[in-house]
Design a protein around this nucleic acid. Structure first.
Lengths: 103, 103
DNA sequence: TATCTTCATAAGTCATGGCTTATTATAAGC
DNA sequence: GCTTATAATAAGCCATGACTTATGAAGATA
């Protein structure tokens, strides 16, 4: 499984994406997430494990707690992938225009 | 299932993403994709159906064939989602700096 | 030390989804 | 018309993954 696979797969699940969005908004502990979300604490931990493997979040111990925060680098590859297609798409569009424009 | 869900879910599968990338590179028929990919024609059709539902590709009939091409609007929501987190992340970073900088 | 909290992991259940082969419909070519 | 090519759908199989409850480990608190 490539790195890119892990990234896209991590973002595919709605619950996991919601967790990511919360953590992105404000760093917080597992218990805090579990308290305000409609799934159990183990489910939260499992999702965080996936997000961490995709480098979307980081974690730091704080006593018995573990504070999760967004990983600033995590979304970089996604943006790179996206940009690749935007320029590709632009090139294709340009070529199409030039072909149609049979001057 | 929301629109965003469909978008992320569509991009999650590696085979489907490969199909999308090929179609983005050059518009082509189902048979053409099936010939050059390690899955069957029905599998290709099923993937294209998902990509189409996510507005990532379009299709146009051409005789007995059906030519699939990238949908220019498709990646827009993904970029919007991404940008939302980049600015959010930037704001969080800014706030952190200002807090640390207890002038 | 004993208890309580926090979190990760284990184990098991169930739905989803990606794949296959088989079939059907439509269009092209003989 | 008949055959061939193209592509969508149907049905079924099987792996994956998202969830649950149960448990254990590590830190805080009395």
């Amino acid at each position: 499984m490539t790195y890119e696979d892990r990234l896209f797969a991590a973002l595919a699940d709605p619950t996991r994406r919601a967790i990511f969005e919360r953590v992105a908004g404000r760093r917080q502990s597992v218990a805090e997430l579990a308290r305000t979300m409609p799934v159990s604490q183990p489910a939260i931990s499992q999702h965080l494990k996936v997000l961490k493997a995709a480098r979307l979040v980081r974690d730091a111990p704080s006593g018995a707690r573990r504070i999760y925060s967004i990983d600033p680098e995590g979304l970089g590859p996604l943006r790179a992938w996206l940009d690749r297609f935007w320029s590709e798409q632009l090139a294709a569009f340009k070529a199409a225009v030039e072909t149609a424009d049979d001057s």
